[in-house]
């Protein structure tokens, strides 16, 4: 009993770890850290190794012995990797902008305004969630092609420009605003537009950040859809371009390593600086679909 009291009284309360437990916990944490981070570091190390350093050795050096950035220049001479990065960025920017505007407007209308057909529309938005994207990818390509957008970046960006899940997430965010606040604005004669701008937007900034960040990462990381839409190597996005590099010049791992780092580093920096939004996004059910 005394033991229990002591535990409850402590600052950490129940389960404040003792020294033995702490050592065990940190040992396990470091082990998992090694498993998750070492493959990335190994790739980074390979990308920095000079042409005379043996990357294949059975006991290779983890730290580059002759560190150099020339692989990054070489990969750019082999494939237009900076153009690919720019292409990926263009697609991501269109997708982010479209979702920020389109999902916000529709989410607000579905959550706060009354109109005929709202229920039916909501049911249709919801029903798209049970359909994995791959099921409609062929007909989506047929649609994009009939618009004359096959093999274009716009064709890559367009279908994801307003994500159905994002509309529903924004609707949920607007619904969380207390009804009384909104009703007061209606009585004061505010138009829907004024209610959206002055009352709605300030209260959904968190969710808006979550959906824009996830839209950016989703577009930047996407592979199957751009692989289907794009044909001409000069239009490739970074993921498609990297696979192309891998298929064509698999002889030099240093170049592929440099290419993967060009794709990976911007995302890691974005993630590290905005990580609290990521965890919130997953917790709020922004389940990738």
């Amino acid at each position: 009993m005394a033991d229990l009291k002591r535990r409850r009284g402590g600052r950490g309360g129940f389960g404040a770890p003792g020294p033995g437990e702490l050592v065990l916990r940190y040992t396990l944490l470091l082990l998992v850290l090694a498993i998750t981070v070492l493959p990335f570091l190994w790739q980074l190390s390979t990308s920095l190794k000079g042409p005379y350093e043996d990357v294949f050795a059975q006991t290779p050096s983890f730290v580059p012995l002759q560190p150099t950035l020339e692989n990054y220049a070489k990969v750019a001479a082999t494939i237009p990797v900076w153009t690919y990065a720019l292409n990926s960025l263009i697609v991501a920017v269109i997708v982010v902008g479209g979702n920020a505007v389109g999902a916000t407007l529709a989410g607000f209308a579905l959550a706060r305004l009354e109109f005929r057909g709202a229920k039916l529309l909501l049911a249709l938005f919801l029903s798209t969630l049970v359909l994995p994207g791959e099921v409609t990818i062929i007909s989506q390509y047929v649609t994009v092609r009939s618009m004359g957008l096959a093999d274009t970046l716009l064709g890559v960006a367009l279908p994801g420009t307003i994500g159905m899940l994002n509309v529903l997430l924004m609707r949920t965010a607007f619904q969380a605003i207390p009804k009384e606040m909104d009703e007061a604005a209606v009585i004061d004669g505010a138009t829907p537009w004024q209610r959206l701008v002055h009352l709605g937007l300030p209260n959904v900034r968190g969710m808006l950040s979550v959906i824009t960040i996830f839209a950016f990462i989703g577009a930047w990381d996407d592979f199957l859809w751009p692989l289907i839409v794009l044909n001409d190597p000069k239009n490739f996005t970074l993921t498609v371009g990297l696979q192309y590099l891998n298929g064509t010049f698999s002889a030099n791992p240093r170049l592929i390593a440099a290419g993967t780092m060009i794709s990976f580093l911007p995302i890691v920096i974005l993630f590290a600086s905005l990580q609290r939004f990521f965890f919130r996004g997953v917790a709020e059910g922004a389940i990738k679909g």
Binding site: V101, G102, A103, L105, A106, F108, A109, L110, L113, E114, F115, A118, L121, L124, F125, T128, L131, V135, T136, I138, S139, Q140, V142, T143, L158, P159, T161, I162, M164, V167, T191, P192, W193, L196
Partner: peptide, 24 residues
């Protein structure tokens, strides 16, 4: 107004979701 706000998303719903589903 509500229809104007929801129109872009509804367009995307029909062009890139409902129609491709039926077309599949």
């Amino acid at each position: 107004t509500p229809w104007l706000l929801v129109a872009p998303a509804a367009l995307w719903l029909f062009v890139f979701n409902v129609w491709p589903s039926l077309n599949t």
